[in-house]
């Protein structure tokens, strides 16, 4: 069977925190068929050449959001990227940019998880209803206001695409702000003012300089850049009009 297979060179940025001072590249010659994804290429390396190669994956169908990596310098989900599209050239795999490398292709996402928590990614009801009062009703129009921003799979490719996050790791960043916007835009939610404190803060939306690459690489077309920039306008309005608001806006 192997004689029918083409061979592609896969270069992987390796880093072992226990033995390496810094990451280095290693090249593997991988036989592949046309239906093999980049993720399968990495799995081939792990199974046949070096069992210590470390990377995250789960669903293999672009919905779990765990197999993101830099593929020839571009943030992509490795499960929906195919080796055949790179052959006969060499393909280079690196851990997602702008995150600390934990080991090989695995990055430290704890900062992202903290940011995700900080935006309160759940509905905080405008008016709490008892069970007897029934469900929260929502019109198709109200649903359409936020549906796009629910598609996020937390793959963090947008962070790997965002130089401002790379330069200022405190920046809440595209993905978390897109999700924040998703809850703010939900007619059942009433916590936009509460979340404004974060949006308008020094870690908030104003780190963004509208590079727009986050929206370009998003595998689910969430358009996080749009969410961030809409919230710049919201934060500016809150900044200038906070003295007119009865609650005084956030601090």
């Amino acid at each position: 069977m192997t004689e029918n297979l083409k061979i592609i060179e896969i270069e992987v940025l390796r880093y072992n925190p226990e033995s390496d001072r810094e990451p280095h590249l290693e090249v593997y010659k991988v036989p592949f068929s046309d239906d093999m994804s980049v993720l399968q290429g990495a799995q081939y390396i792990k199974d046949n050449f070096d069992g210590s190669l470390t990377f995250r994956w789960s669903c293999r169908m672009a919905i779990c959001g765990s197999c993101g990596m830099m593929i020839n310098g571009i943030p992509k989900l490795s499960c929906e990227t195919f080796l055949r599209d790179y052959y006969p050239n060499r393909i280079r795999l690196e851990a997602m940019h702008h995150f600390p490398i934990e080991k090989d292709l695995v990055v430290d996402l704890s900062g992202f998880i903290e940011k995700l928590e900080s935006i309160q990614p759940y509905i905080i009801p405008k008016e709490p209803r008892s069970l007897e009062q029934g469900e929260y009703l929502q019109s198709p129009k109200q649903f359409s206001d936020y549906i796009q921003f629910t598609s996020c799979i937390n793959c963090t490719l947008c962070y790997a695409a965002c130089p401002q996050f790379g330069l200022n790791p405190d920046f809440i960043g595209p993905g978390a702000i897109a999700l924040l916007h998703r809850y703010n835009m939900d007619s059942r939610d009433g916590a936009a003012a509460e979340r404004m404190e974060l949006v308008a803060s020094e870690e908030g939306v104003f780190h963004c300089s509208a590079v727009g690459y986050c929206s370009e690489v998003c595998p689910k077309h969430v358009d996080p850049a749009n969410a961030v920039n809409i919230n710049k306008t919201n934060a500016a309005r809150d900044y200038f009009l906070r003295f007119l608001s009865p609650k005084g806006g956030s601090k």
Binding site: Y15, P17, E18, E22, P23, G73, I74, H97, H98, P100, I101, E102, D108, P163, G166, L167, V211, G212, Y213, E216
Partner: peptide, 21 residues
């Protein structure tokens, strides 16, 4: 654990999208 932080130097030269930016 010893997470490795990569430098940002020259980030904008590494991708045509950033060069245009």
């Amino acid at each position: 654990r010893r997470p490795y932080v990569r430098p940002m130097e020259g980030w904008w030269k590494k991708n045509p999208y950033f060069v245009e930016y």
